[in-house]
Amino acid sequence: MIGCAGAMYLLINGRIMGASGILGGLVDGTGRSTWGERVAFLLGLMLFPPLLVPLYDKVDTRVTDNLWLLVSAGLLVGIGTRIANGCTSGHGVCGISRLSLRGIGATVAYIAAGGVVVLAFRHWLGII
């Protein structure tokens, strides 16, 4: 489904389905000329999944309630994805499938960094 969504966005709209790029271009003004498509994508992304929740017994996203962690992580994700120009969907799904060196390099870097952080914060510090 994720891959088909990306394929549709590429072949019909001619755009790369990257969540951080679509949102980032909207909030920092660089994507003003394509704001309609961006808003439409984000509305579909935010409003459709809750309609599917009743099909399941229980959907639990298990988000932490530690506000310090949430704010630090949000800032890191926001700044990092804009500096690197992509996140899991843009670099990971769309980049790797294009056999793009940048997509593959970015994916290796963020999974390694995520791995080290989980190792440190879960196994050494016991915070998460």
Binding site: S72, A73, G74, L75, L76, V77, I79, G80, T81, R82, I83, A84, N85, C87, T88, H91, G105, A106, T107, A109, Y110, I111, A112, A113, G114, G115, V116, V117, V118, F121
Partner: peptide, 10 residues
Amino acid sequence: GSVMFGAGWG
């Protein structure tokens, strides 16, 4: 950027 993103993701 990817290292920062990965850290936040983790």
